[in-house]
Design a protein around this nucleic acid. Structure first.
Lengths: 118, 118
DNA sequence: CTGAATCCTGCCAGATACTG
DNA sequence: CAGTATCTGGCAGGATTCAG
């Protein structure tokens, strides 16, 4: 009667899909570094460019655009004599703070584990 | 006296580094899908291969090797008439369960947010 | 300053064949 | 079954230039 339970059925499949969803949104080399910084407040394009070591202008604008498309960040344009654009987490994007905290916590814990070995 | 506080100094830098650490370990297209499955128990190479849509044998073994190098998973080899290898989360790798839960939760929540728009 | 467009390159990863 | 080796095309992403 009871068919052997597949370890990957039921709730599990839902979780796997959810993880795929998240990773799809956050995939790419620079999404997390960008988001992590915006967790602390809005930043200008040039500030992000300076802050994120190694990123190119092309990649920064590409990734920002994707994040904006997914409603995770918002941009605000100021036109004075020289243009200024600020990026910030959207209301929905604020939910990423919890996630980045989890990720950061794991990183800190992992680093401690590594240290103990030496 | 009080220098203007840089939004990206202090604890913040620590968090940014921690996120970089985590993402470095978990970077790559297939790390999370693999880990997510191993959260539910050990699996054979061929089971993972079937379970993860789109992954090639080369990538699977490569990513498994990296995860093993980072002490997140362990492999167990059985030699009967035909070889069998099972992969499981290591003790330290178990800490990834919490992280994957956070990631899955965010994915579920995000999907709901998207739905509401329509 | 904030990008978009173009060109160019390395390496990522798929396909295939082979091994223990 | 559980991988490795080799070969190859495509594309991610860097550098540079142009535009608003």
């Amino acid at each position: 009667m009871d068919k052997k339970v597949n370890v990957l059925s039921g709730d599990c499949a839902k979780k796997l899909r959810a993880i795929d969803d998240t990773m799809y949104i956050l995939s790419g080399k620079w999404k997390m570094p960008i988001i992590a910084r915006l967790c602390y407040g809005s930043m200008r394009y040039s500030e992000l460019l300076k802050s994120i070591a190694g990123i190119s202008g092309k990649m920064l604008s590409r990734e920002l655009k994707e994040l904006e498309t997914n409603n995770l960040i918002e941009k605000e344009v100021w036109r004075s004599e020289s243009m200024s654009v600020r990026y910030r987490l959207s209301e929905h994007g604020q939910t990423l703070k919890i996630l980045t905290d989890s990720i950061a916590d794991w990183g800190i814990n992992h680093r401690m584990q590594i240290m103990e070995k030496w």
